[in-house]
Write a protein that binds this DNA or RNA. Structure first.
Length: 512
RNA sequence: CGGGGUGUAGCUUAGCUUGGUAGAGCGCCUGGUUUGGGACCAGGAGGUCGCAGGUUCGAAUCCUGUCACCCCGACCA
C-alpha cells in the first residue's frame, strides 16, 4: 500500500493557508475567470468571470432603477483643465492618471510608429479615473431651477487608475464599474441619498454575494478626495483582511462649487446643488473569490452564479449513451422551466466526451452550486446523484430526479444561506473587541515575521479621533481604520492608544 | 521612484559553475481502451533558450548593454 498523503489532494495548489495570494491567482486561473493581459496591470475577463460580473450588473441595475435612477453615458476623456477644478480631487488622483496627448501616429526617423509630433493636442485629455468633474460640468448646464432636481443618474463604464501594484480583479489599471452621480436641492436629501445607496450595496452584497459587511463612515484620512463624507461597506475575506466592497460619498457643495452647479430655489435665491456619488467595481469579483472559494477552487453563491446546475451524463457503454443523454436533457428542460430570482434556472448539460471525473473537477473548480450525475444505473431507478458545492467533494446524494426538480430552488437557497452563515461565522470568529494597546499590537503581529501566517482580523477598539494615532498604527502595523461603524447605541470609552475620550469603537484591520 | 531577484514550449522547470546549437512533467493533438472522483496504452505537434551586441571554429551557458516581469518599501476601488 502506498503511503496515504498527510492531507487530501486539493484541486488548487497551494492551499489557502500555505500561500493566500498565490492561491487566489490559481483559483482565477483554474476557474477560467480572467487572464493577465500583455498590458501591464490590465486583465482579460473571460466568459465565466464576465458572467459573474453581468449578474452583478443586472441585479444592481434593478436596484438602482427601483430607487429612481436612470443610466446615461459620459465621455471617457476628461479635459485636463476639468481635473483642476476641485483641489483635493486633483491631489487625490493626479498620481495615477493616464493622459492622452496626441491624436495621430506616424512613422518616425527610426522607422517605428510614434505619436506624430505634429498632432499634439492643445489640451491633454485625461482618461477618466472617475467622472465627477465631467459629469459636474454637464449637470451645470442641466440645472437651473429646483424643478430640475433631483438628478439621479448612474453610468456603467470602465475607468483607468495607473496603479503601481496591480492584482487581478482587486487592483487593475483598467477596471469596470458603476458610478452614480446625483444632485439634490438640500443637504438633508443628499445625505439621505448617500445612505440609501450604501444600503443598496449592503443589501446586494449580503443577499446576492452572501457576504456580511460592516457599514459605516470613513475616517478623514480614508475619505474620497473632495468628499465631505465617505460611507463604505467593509467585508472580511479568508486571510482575515478587510476589503472595501462599495462606497457612497456625500460631496456637499464642493463639486457644485467647482463645476458651477447652481439653481434657483423655491424662494428665488441662487444656491449650489448638493451632490453625491457612489460606486462599486469588478473588485467585487475578487472579493467574492476571496470570501467563498476553497482549496478546490471557486465557490459561487447561487444568486450570482452564471450556471446554477450542471448535469454530467455518465456514459460508460455505447448502447446506453443515447438514453443517458436523453435523460440528462429531459432533466435540464424540466429545471429550465423553473424560475429562480426572476429568470429561468441556468442549466448546463456537459456532453463532452471526457471522463466523468475530469468533467466534475472542472465544474468544482468553476464553483457551480449544484452538480448532477446521471448514469446508466439511474435510468431504471429514476435517480440522479446530486452534489452541492458547499459540501465536501465526495458527499454525493442519490435522489429521485423528480424530487430533485421539485427541491432544486430549496437546495439553492440552502446553499446561499449556508455560504452567508459560513462567511459570517468566519468574520465573527475573527473580530475581536480590544481594550489595550498591547493586545492590539499582539493581535496584528504574525508569529512568523519572515513568512507571515494568516493572522489578525477585525479589531473593534476605541480611538480618540486623531490623525496622528491612525498614522502611527499604519506605519507600525499596516493596520488602518476601515470604518466608523453605524451603531444604534454607541459605546463611549477611552482610546486604547492615548487614553483620550472616544465616542465609539471603530473597525481596524489590514486591508486590500 | 529606492532595495533584492528572475527571464529556457501554453504552465512548472532541468541544463549554465567546467561553451559542442535543448530535456522532463503537466497541458495540447491523433487513434484505441475508458468514463459514477482528476484513467490508461501507443503515436505526435510545439522552443531563433527575453532582446541586442561582443568573445569564440562553436554561446541557453562567458562578457557588455537593454527590456520585461516578480518580491519588499511609499499610493490606491
Amino acid at each position: 500500500m502506498a503511503n496515504q498523503p498527510a492531507v487530501a489532494k486539493t484541486a488548487i495548489s497551494p492551499r489557502r493557508e500555505e500561500d493566500f495570494p498565490e492561491w487566489y491567482q490559481q483559483v482565477i486561473r483554474a476557474a477560467e475567470l480572467a487572464d493577465p493581459s500583455d498590458v501591464r496591470g490590465c486583465m482579460v475577463i473571460r466568459p465565466w468571470g464576465y458572467g459573474i460580473w453581468e449578474n452583478m450588473q443586472r441585479q444592481l441595475d434593478l436596484m438602482f432603477k427601483a430607487t429612481g435612477h436612470r443610466n446615461a453615458y459620459f465621455p471617457l476623456f476628461i479635459p485636463l483643465s476639468y481635473m483642476q477644478k476641485e483641489a483635493e480631487h486633483v491631489e487625490g488622483f493626479a498620481k495615477e492618471c493616464a493622459v492622452v496627448t496626441h491624436h495621430r501616429l506616424d512613422i518616425g526617423p527610426d522607422g517605428k510608429m510614434r505619436p506624430a509630433p505634429s498632432a499634439e493636442l492643445s489640451e491633454p485629455l485625461v482618461v477618466r479615473p472617475t467622472s465627477e468633474t465631467i459629469i459636474g460640468a454637464t449637470y451645470a448646464k442641466w440645472v437651473q431651477s429646483y424643478r430640475d432636481l433631483p438628478i439621479l443618474i448612474n453610468q456603467w463604464c470602465n475607468v483607468v487608475r495607473w496603479e503601481m501594484r496591480p492584482r487581478v480583479f482587486l487592483r487593475t489599471t483598467e477596471f469596470l464599474w458603476q458610478e452614480g452621480h446625483t444632485v439634490h436641492e438640500s443637504e438633508v436629501e443628499a445625505r439621505e441619498e448617500t445612505r440609501r445607496m450604501l444600503d443598496v450595496y449592503e443589501t446586494f452584497v449580503r443577499d446576492h454575494l452572501a457576504i456580511p459587511v460592516f457599514s459605516g463612515e470613513k475616517s478623514e484620512s480614508e475619505r474620497f478626495p473632495g468628499a465631505v463624507q465617505t460611507l463604505c461597506i467593509e467585508a472580511m475575506v479568508q486571510d482575515r483582511k478587510a476589503i472595501q466592497a462599495g462606497t457612497s460619498h456625500f460631496l456637499g457643495q464642493n463639486f457644485s462649487r467647482a463645476s458651477g452647479i447652481e439653481f434657483q430655489t423655491r424662494d428665488g435665491r441662487q444656491e449650489l446643488g448638493w451632490t453625491t456619488s457612489w460606486g462599486m467595481s469588478t473588485r467585487l469579483v475578487g472579493t467574492l473569490i476571496m470570501a467563498h472559494a476553497d482549496d478546490d477552487g471557486l465557490v459561487l453563491p447561487p444568486r450570482i452564479a452564471p450556471t446554477h446546475v450542471v448535469i454530467v451524463p455518465i456514459t460508460p457503454k455505447g448502447e446506453t449513451r443515447a438514453a443517458v443523454h436523453a435523460a440528462a436533457n429531459n432533466l435540464a428542460a424540466a429545471l429550465r422551466s423553473i424560475s429562480y430570482g426572476g429568470s429561468p434556472l441556468e442549466v448546463e448539460v456537459d456532453q463532452r466526451d471526457l471522463g466523468g471525473g475530469v468533467k466534475n473537477w472542472e465544474w468544482i473548480k468553476k464553483g457551480v452550486p449544484l452538480r448532477v450525475e446521471i448514469g446508466p444505473r439511474d435510468l431504471e431507478s429514476g435517480n440522479v446523484a446530486v452534489t452541492r458545492r458547499d459540501q465536501p467533494v465526495k458527499s454525493k446524494e442519490f435522489v429521485l430526479a423528480n424530487d430533485f426538480v421539485c427541491r432544486a430552488i430549496e437546495i439553492l437557497d440552502s446553499i446561499q444561506h449556508n455560504l452567508f452563515d459560513r462567511a459570517k461565522q468566519f468574520r465573527d470568529a475573527n473580530t475581536r473587541i480590544i481594550e489595550s494597546k498591547e493586545e492590539f499590537y499582539d493581535f496584528f503581529t504574525p508569529k512568523n515575521p519572515s513568512k507571515p501566517e494568516i493572522h489578525g482580523g477585525f479589531a473593534l477598539a476605541h480611538w480618540d479621533g486623531s490623525r496622528e494615532v491612525e498614522e502611527q498604527i499604519k506605519s507600525d502595523l499596516k493596520v488602518t481604520i476601515r470604518c466608523i461603524p453605524f451603531t444604534g447605541t454607541p459605546e463611549r470609552g477611552t482610546c486604547v492608544f492615548t487614553g483620550a475620550a472616544s465616542p465609539q469603537r471603530v473597525v481596524w484591520a489590514k486591508a486590500y
